[in-house]
Nucleic acid binder design. Structure first.
Lengths: 154, 154
DNA sequence: GATTAATAGTTGCAACTGCAACCAAGTCAA
DNA sequence: TTGACTTGGTTGCAGTTGCAACTATTAATC
């Protein structure tokens, strides 16, 4: 029976995923942070709006699994930065419809292009076989966790 | 030629990695945080010390790519929590040798065991083929980024 | 209609983070 | 030795985060 002392962090899947995620994210961060003054959450919000058009904050939370308070603050910042506008819905005045301004769309187009390039370089280095494989696996992992939180009661 | 507007966050490798990492980490976080009051960095420091015995803060930074200030603060907290001791080296009085106390080793053994279990469940769900494959790929990605930061100059 | 519950979004707070600046100790060279 | 440089580790600060508590609006129940 395995003892806790046998545990090696370097083989722990959540740790490996974190390392890989941080390694790749760090490189791209410069693009949206230094060059456009966006936080990561802001960039993600922008990416969703750029992709899907108008959405509510709640929609963004759903599709990208970001905390609603993070989205709230990101949206506030982007609004004052002139990147998006919000209009409260007539049907339900709790709801706000978010959409990128022309300026916001322009920024999205530029960062999006950098992102495509970045992704392509990354995948080129991994090779086509691995590059296509990794997507499937990662999505599987994400889905796994969504469907049921792992409960370990000692 | 691809335009920035074609960009889809859901296919962006850094994003997928982040989602997968967060999904898996969140589940395990409860174990070390709620149950033992450790931060993630503290848990990682502990895992390294538990695995390798005495190390310096600098060593920990090297092997696990954690910022030195994070390590510094984690170590301080763990010391006041009675989980580790530091003794300044005689040869070089800048250096501090860190090692777990018996209490620290006990906690490590328990969390380590939970971690092994957690990892096993995760891999079981993925299936053996994927589980073994993902390690290789992730390590490849980590190594990629280490050897050379991607530079994209528009 | 009044009461209760649910939902969209915000805010306060305490903790965590990253970066740059810092201190103390050691090295190297003249 | 003195000075310039490196290195191990800490600290200050400004920004980000997560959680719980909050407001405002709508829905449900009686």
């Amino acid at each position: 029976m395995a003892q806790g002392g046998d545990f090696d962090l370097q083989d722990f899947l959540p740790y490996l995923l974190n390392q890989a995620a941080e390694a790749t994210s760090r490189g791209f961060q410069a693009t949206y942070r230094a060059r456009y003054g966006l936080t990561r959450t802001q960039w993600r919000v922008m990416a969703n709006l750029g992709r899907f058009g108008a959405m509510t904050a709640r929609d963004i939370c759903r599709v990208s699994h970001i905390e609603k308070t993070k989205v709230s603050r990101a949206v506030a910042g982007m609004e004052t930065g002139g990147l998006l506008t919000r209009t409260t819905s007539d049907r339900d005045r709790r709801v706000e419809n978010l959409s990128l301004t022309p300026a916001g769309r322009a920024v999205f187009a530029e960062i999006g292009q950098s992102a495509l390039k970045f992704d392509a370089i990354l995948r080129a280095r991994l090779g086509p076989e691995v590059a296509s494989r990794i997507d499937t696996i990662l999505r599987e992992i994400i889905a796994l966790q969504a469907e049921s939180a792992i409960t370990e009661d000692d």
